[in-house]
Design a protein around this nucleic acid. Structure first.
Length: 775
RNA sequence: GCCCGGGUGGCGAAAUCGGCAGACGCAAAGGACUUAAAAUCCUUUUCGCCGCAAGGCGAGUGCGGGUUCAAGUCCCGCCCCGGGCACCA
């Protein structure tokens, strides 16, 4: 049916758009000015795969997919604002990616270096750390990434590490705790100290990072990461080097979640800067080059990993911290390390101090004597944005044999992505083969030079495209700052939790950079974030990579767009996972038809002009329903209960239908159309037209409810005896306690349960409940 | 191991502030309309026991305790499922 194999709209999209669209329509009806754009994939990888398989131009493929997706969204009744399209594959847009890149380059926030990078053999490109999931590619969940040393462009997210962390305070109330926790974890701030250890007999020093400098007298060896730069110097012997390589290979073969600790002695010693004693230097497979300094001091008595390592290799265990009210362990016999804070012992002049006090004083001492300092380390790393892909924004850099790295001048932007490129999937940048693209004269000296052949990660696009919606036709700047000042920060952002440490961290970073460049004033992109639950199908999470997506095409053909989207709202509250069952759609469809029949049947006019009990009853239910749905929108977004209450209303209307008067029917039908508008816009508009209106239904004010009309005449009050329900009494609202108590005690269904017992207490909650305590 | 969610009928779920557990929908069963089917409309439907029946009694929200007149909801201790992080020094 579709002209392309991929690019199906999956239910995750339908779900988050249903939620956002319902809210936007409600807000419009409440009179708010709502800018309500919907994002879409930049289609980087699928575009290239399609190009590889079908020989199509990826750019053409992407554009047709976006067009397809927009058409789908329109068929599903979502409110695209057609004047605000931003296609991240268009030069008018990606030009600004390049502009931002140059601004960052000027500020030292974009730089090039050689590094070990995650390489996905399936994608034939490198990935950012954020895009590696369980050691595998985020798009190929069973393909392990490889490590490759490459020249890459990085954006300095680490420069904003502390701000990204601190500003989460502002997000505390509006963002889900789990997303903040994931980001906190990812940024990974640790406070501690850096300490230099001299290498015995060599001028080199080894710097380690520790959060527990108070335990330093218990350090019995240093351990370097396998990739540590000093390893080559310390280990000269070829046979020894071979062993290191074997260890690296053995580590790579192990289950990444549970790696057995391996180590090799270097034969060298380090000089302990506090005690002056000599401790051996080891190489260990569990020490990460990418964190801290790539070297640690091992304190086996007070760290679990060090304990395991040192026991394995027979390295001494020296306890130097004792519990507040306990004795120091015996290093030879202790079974597990003591990792808590306590009192420092056997540590020279610091013995007797608390751990906390020792941390401060020892770091200060190291600083005063020039071999260390207090330090804060972050786990987050800079964002590698180079991709060896065709699809993406060309990086606006020229390599000149004389001038070196030269940025493309702003006036020469955009650097166009050449069309008609053959994608080979061979793992080299496709652009490298396009000589007309690669050959360029140096913007600085005019000499023959070569362009950068990599393109940017498509997460660059998603980091800021939503800003462009405010001013999409601007050709002087990414957008006008004033347009942003009006709309930003976003009041409500809706998306999947899978982007917690990808898009949602990149876009926060990008916003802070834009603020520092001076084109936006806000520091955070979104005040509130709502993460919808996953869509589960047959017990598995629905995802593009697993391939178990439900195409909305069949469903739309069978039941119409409104039923499909309304079902996604009805089946579960939006924050919970949604178990997708095709059967459920028919139920919603049945309800819509039922409602539709009721309104159209009555639209041409009923006969009855008398108002009576049935009218009062129906109007009461109507006002209760308006109250219920309004409350759901204003507080907790449990649209499943909103829709359930609409169903209840329609059920009740069917029951009293024949007795309703002309005037109340008119009011009921109009309100029904309005209440339906956020959930089923096509049906609602159709009904609205049928009722003789000519304006769009969602431009009409949201119905008001009258609390008096919504009130029941009599309260139905349950009567319990010893907490068990025995009867109901009916009484006017506000009936005093004494009267309710008397009514309850006198109730013929209650009396038998009081026989032979003494009433010791009667709990009365006016209008709510009576509970008689009898023994 | 640590951090988040969650556990309620055959199923998706509801119970918003500690106050009638199971709203609404699916599936199932029965009835009306129909030559018939579909569609539609109406009824029944947590489980167990008693009753010809109207109805009645008891149990019940993962398990075990606790607080309370009253617990799906609060407290303590567990179990299970989903998600995230995981040698982060």
């Amino acid at each position: 049916m579709l002209p392309y194999p991929s690019g199906k709209l999956h239910m995750g999209h339908v779900r988050n758009y249903s939620i956002g669209d319902a809210l936007a329509r409600y807000m419009w009806m409440r009179g708010y000015n709502v800018l309500h754009p919907m994002g879409w994939d930049a289609f980087g990888l699928p575009a290239e795969n399609a190009a590889l398989k079908e020989g199509r131009d990826p750019r053409d493929w992407t554009l047709s997919n976006i067009a397809h997706m927009k058409a789908q969204m329109q068929r599903l009744g979502f409110a695209f604002d057609w004047n605000r399209e931003v296609a991240s594959c268009e030069p008018e847009y990606y030009r600004w990616n390049q502009w931002f890149f140059l601004k960052m380059y000027e500020r030292g926030l974009a730089y090039r270096k050689e590094a070990l990078l995650n390489w996905c053999p399936e994608c034939c490109t490198v990935l950012a750390n954020e895009q590696v999931v369980n050691g595998c590619c985020w798009r190929h969940e069973t393909t392990p990434v490889e490590q490759r040393a490459m020249q890459q462009w990085f954006l300095k997210t680490t420069a904003y590490a502390s701000e990204l962390l601190d500003d989460m305070r502002e997000l505390q109330d509006g963002w889900p705790e789990r997303v903040l926790a994931m980001q906190r974890n990812w940024i990974g701030r640790s406070e501690g100290a850096e300490v230099d250890f001299a290498v015995d007999g060599l001028p080199e020093k080894i710097r380690v990072f520790t959060t527990r400098i108070d335990t330093i007298y218990g350090a019995t060896c240093l351990i370097l990461a396998q990739e540590h730069p000093l390893v080559n110097l310390l280990v000269q012997d070829e046979a020894e080097r071979l062993k290191i390589k074997e260890m690296i290979d053995a580590t790579a073969r192990q289950d990444p979640g549970n790696i057995q600790k391996l180590g090799l002695p270097t034969g060298r010693c380090a000089v302990h800067p506090f005690s002056g004693s000599r401790i051996p230097i080891w190489i260990g497979n569990f020490v990460l080059m990418g964190y801290g300094t790539g070297a640690i001091m091992a304190v086996p008595a007070h760290d679990e990993r060090d304990f395991e390592f040192c026991r394995t290799y027979g390295i001494p265990v020296v306890p130097v911290i004792r519990p507040e009210d306990g004795a120091l362990d015996d290093g030879a016999t202790m079974q597990q390390p003591f990792v808590d804070y306590g009192v420092v012992e056997n540590s020279g002049q610091w013995s007797g101090l608390s751990s906390a006090e020792a941390r401060k004083q020892m770091a200060a001492f190291a600083n005063a004597n020039g071999f260390g300092n207090e330090a804060i380390t972050y786990r987050i790393k800079d964002w590698g944005i180079s991709r060896q892909r065709y699809w993406g924004t060309p990086i606006p850099i020229v390599y000149c044999p004389k001038c070196g790295i030269v940025p493309v001048p702003e006036k020469d932007l955009p650097v166009h992505l050449p069309l008609g490129v053959k994608i080979t999937g061979q793992g080299k940048s496709p652009l490298e083969t396009v000589e007309s693209f690669m050959n360029v004269s140096c913007p600085r000296c005019g000499a023959a030079a070569r362009r950068e052949s990599d393109t940017m990660d498509t997460f660059v696009d998603s980091s800021w495209y939503f800003y462009r919606y405010c001013d999409p036709r601007n050709d002087q700047a990414p957008f006008a700052s004033d347009a942003i000042a009006y709309w930003f920060p976003i009041d409500q952002y809706i998306g999947g939790v899978e982007h917690a440490i990808l898009h949602l961290i990149y876009s926060r970073f990008w916003t802070k950079v834009m603020r520092d460049i001076g084109i936006v004033r806000n520091s955070e992109p979104a005040k509130r974030l709502f993460t919808q639950g996953m869509v589960i199908k047959d017990g598995a999470k629905m995802s593009k990579s697993l391939g178990n997506v439900v195409s909305p095409d069949d469903m739309v053909a069978q039941f119409g767009a409104d039923s499909a989207r309304m079902y996604s709202l009805f089946a579960a509250p939006p924050d919970r996972d949604l178990d997708w069952q095709e059967d459920g759609v028919s139920g919603v469809n049945r309800f819509l038809a039922r409602l539709y029949r009721f309104v159209t049947r009555k639209a041409d006019g009923a006969e009855n002009t008398e108002t009576g009990d049935a009218d009062r009853q129906a109007l009461r239910k109507l006002h209760q329903t308006v109250r219920k749905i309004t409350n759901d929108f204003d507080s907790r977004w449990h649209f499943n209960t909103s829709i359930a209450s609409l169903m209840e209303l329609v059920n009740e209307l069917y029951a009293v239908e024949a007795k309703l008067s002309k005037t109340s029917l008119r009011q009921i039908c109009e309100t029904l159309a309005l209440l339906l508008a956020p959930f089923a816009p096509y049906t609602a508009q159709d009904l609205w037209d049928t009722l003789g209106h000519t304006d769009p239904v969602f431009r009409h004010p949201w119905p008001q409810y009258d609390p008096e009309l919504a009130k029941e005449d009599l309260a139905e009050i349950p009567v319990q005896v010893n907490g068990k329900l025995r009867a109901h009494i009916h009484a006017a609202f506000g009936t005093p306690r004494e009267q309710l108590e008397a009514l309850a005690l006198d109730h013929e269904r209650v009396k038998p349960f009081l026989d032979g017992k003494r009433v010791s207490k009667v709990i009365v909650v006016p209008d709510r409940l009576v509970n008689i305590v009898a023994k």
